[in-house]
């Protein structure tokens, strides 16, 4: 059977509908690009984890992407759950939250970034408006939480511009 069929179709496999917030995700990511870099330095990152977490079979991907002005310690982070596991991620956002960065701390080689969800009315049970992510670029890992549960992500992008 052709690869066309393997790659082309969204396979929900019967977990009901994969609901879509694609338009919202597009807006959010464009917003990221517009927060811009700073003359005092900026940090761009993206980190990904499989959902559910191993040893369960993954079904979705938790993607956190951010751009932070290191001079003002401000910026925007987008956290999104995409359909498909990290190796077969589909451009379909199941859940998207925009976070306003409120502080960045450097602790050795790690950066601890905190922020608040921009639109708290989006939050569901188990979600909080407060957001924290600790990124260790040397080990390509990031620690945050997903609905109150700690989760480790793999850092796929890490770029500091002066």
């Amino acid at each position: 059977m052709s690869k066309f069929t393997r790659r082309r179709f969204l396979i929900a496999g019967g977990a009901g509908a994969i609901a879509v917030a694609a338009g919202g995700a597009a807006l959010a990511i464009r917003q990221l690009t517009q927060t811009g870099s700073s003359s005092t330095g900026s940090l761009t990152f993206q980190a990904v984890a499989a959902l559910p977490r191993p040893p369960l079979v993954s079904y979705a991907s938790y993607v956190i992407a951010g751009q932070v002005n290191l001079g003002s310690n401000t910026g925007t982070i987008i956290r999104t759950v995409f359909a498909g596991d990290p190796n077969d991620r589909l451009p379909i956002a199941l859940l998207t939250r925009s976070v306003r960065v409120t502080n960045v701390e450097t602790q050795g080689s790690t950066r601890r970034i905190t922020g608040m969800v921009n639109n708290p009315s989006q939050l569901q049970k188990g979600e909080t408006a407060n957001f924290t992510i600790v990124i260790d670029p040397n080990h390509h890992t990031a620690q945050t939480d997903f609905y109150g549960s700690p989760i480790e992500l793999q850092v796929q992008q890490w770029k500091v511009s002066s």
Binding site: A22, I29, T33
Partner: peptide, 26 residues
């Protein structure tokens, strides 16, 4: 550095290529 140089477009024209109208949900 995709977020800066090539913003992702996740709008319906792209998404429609997934042919979700063939995806059996239940």
């Amino acid at each position: 550095a995709l977020l800066v140089e090539e913003p992702i477009q996740l709008e319906p024209a792209d998404a429609e290529n997934l042919y979700v109208n063939l995806n059996i949900t239940d």
